[in-house]
Design a protein around this nucleic acid. Structure first.
Lengths: 280, 280
DNA sequence: AAAAAAATCGATCAAATCGATCATTTCTCA
DNA sequence: TGAGAAATGATCGATTTGATCGATTTTTTT
């Protein structure tokens, strides 16, 4: 069951109008004991059909609107299905409906999308799925993330800048995009430099752009010694420009962490956001 | 979604005229439950594309100031400047303004964007710019291309499918996105599998999805022998499923071409589109 | 279970849009 | 060129929309 606010956001009208439509009988509603309107998925759909209203996304049905713990696991299966079947429409629907639910994106990333891609990675390595399915999933996900980012209003805080980057031989872009979306959600200006970058050019970027934060995503490390050297160069640049260095990612094992310097380590994207909230 | 007033101001006509155009079906509209007209961005842009109205006030509909179609020129300097300064807004403006100008996207790609990136590649290798600038340019370009693709109306031809892919150790994604946009412009359904793909999984994708066309973009080749083997595997799969194999890209030298089989070689994206027009 | 936080209620009001009408401008073609 | 047709822009009262308010209900936290 959806609340008037959710439906209003989903189809891009004001809450007031939506309530009036309900009261006029254009959209069937059920009421709670206390008199609050609740709209069932079926009624919403038949309303959209009848009005030819494929406004924001008809795939809003993709995600249950219930709250509770079932939702995380549920959305994971839905997510996996959409990703593996290369169903772009459905995937975008899942993204936007999460965004519209006003729940923090970090939860979606840390408990939904991240685990889903971890699972896809396992399936790929075990041969359950084809490599191209993994790649196309990532491609679709990237598109959905770009769309999501564009949905989030521009940063309120124009001054502080956060940069995201990935090191050499580390092609996993999604983490950076998720971080960008999460940062933008909390009103930070954020840009993604890209992946597969040598350490010294990241250091140059820090020197030139002088970000308040640099986010380094580590998913795989090709050569251990290069990794440590790159991190050291970056760390020195961050020190020189009062840039905070946040590191994280599946590839950042404890052993590797011990060898490098950084301001903060974040296992999950939520950790990074929490860190920013408490440290300016 | 835009209201008639916003759109009227944006293109500099009276509200009354705009409403009449909607009612005559020249501009697709959706109506709210209360009967007010709402115009989607995509519908508006495809309307503008077919007529010679210019965007008097692009800001009215949230487009970058450079979105007027009169400004659609193929100035490489402008493109380069926008890319190297990481000016996303400006870049998007250049893209949309070209799209609105009704000139074929292939020209924009073959004479504008492609050469610009060739130039950026040279600047990167000669040390004129930093690696991160090259990567961020590509990142911004990817975003602009995604937006462009989403602006082009859905494929009219639902049946035929074209797939795009890049081989192992070949991370250049932009070509595939440009091809996807160009194919979509001429009404073809098109998907991008991704880059850095082994040959056998591309072959599997052909077997599973049975596309009418497979586009293989070659920008760099790491190991010559792998390249030839991969191409052969793919070619066999294409033969088995009546899939046409189109190859192209800067990395496809004459020497390499001689060693592989394919249906057609395309130096430019325009060549690929021309080939499709004459060969079903 | 109680308290705190968040969401929704119903009502009101200014602003925007509706459809229709009419004068004016632009286009078409003899 | 000039008459008729067609499109445009301006205006009207009626309706719809979006924003806001304090009071109430729902959800979350303690």
């Amino acid at each position: 069951m959806y609340s008037p606010r959710q439906v209003a956001k989903a189809i891009g009208v004001s809450e007031a109008s939506l309530k009036r439509w309900c009261d006029r009988g254009l959209l069937a509603v059920q009421k709670t004991a206390g008199g609050h309107r609740r709209i069932s998925r079926r009624d919403l759909l038949s309303f959209l059909r009848g009005r030819d209203h494929d406004l924001v996304d008809p795939a809003m049905i993709g995600l249950p609107a219930e709250s509770g713990k079932k939702e995380a696991t549920l959305s994971q299966e839905t997510l996996l299905a959409a990703l593996l079947s290369a169903d772009e429409q459905r995937l975008r629907g899942i993204f936007t409906s999460w965004y519209l639910s006003s729940k923090p994106l970090t939860r979606f990333f840390d408990e939904g999308l991240g685990p889903a891609f971890q699972r896809i990675g396992e399936m790929w390595q075990s041969g359950e799925i084809e490599v191209y399915q993994e790649r196309q999933s990532a491609e679709l996900c990237r598109r959905a993330l770009y769309e999501l980012i564009s949905l989030i209003p521009d940063a309120s805080d124009k001054k502080t800048l956060a940069l995201g980057a990935g090191l050499r031989h580390d092609p996993y872009e999604l983490a950076n995009l998720m971080v960008e979306a999460a940062l933008r959600e909390v009103g930070r200006r954020s840009e993604t430099l890209g992946v597969n970058l040598p350490g010294d050019t990241i250091a140059k970027a820090v020197a030139t752009r002088k970000p308040q934060l640099l986010w380094l995503s580590v998913s795989s490390v090709a050569m251990e010694s290069n990794f440590v050297t790159d991190c050291e160069i970056i760390w020195q640049a961050c020190l020189a420009h009062q840039t905070k260095l946040a590191v994280g990612g599946r590839g950042l094992t404890n052993a590797r962490r011990a060898k490098i310097s950084y301001t903060v380590h974040c296992d999950r994207i939520g950790d990074l956001i929490d860190f920013l909230k408490s440290n300016g």
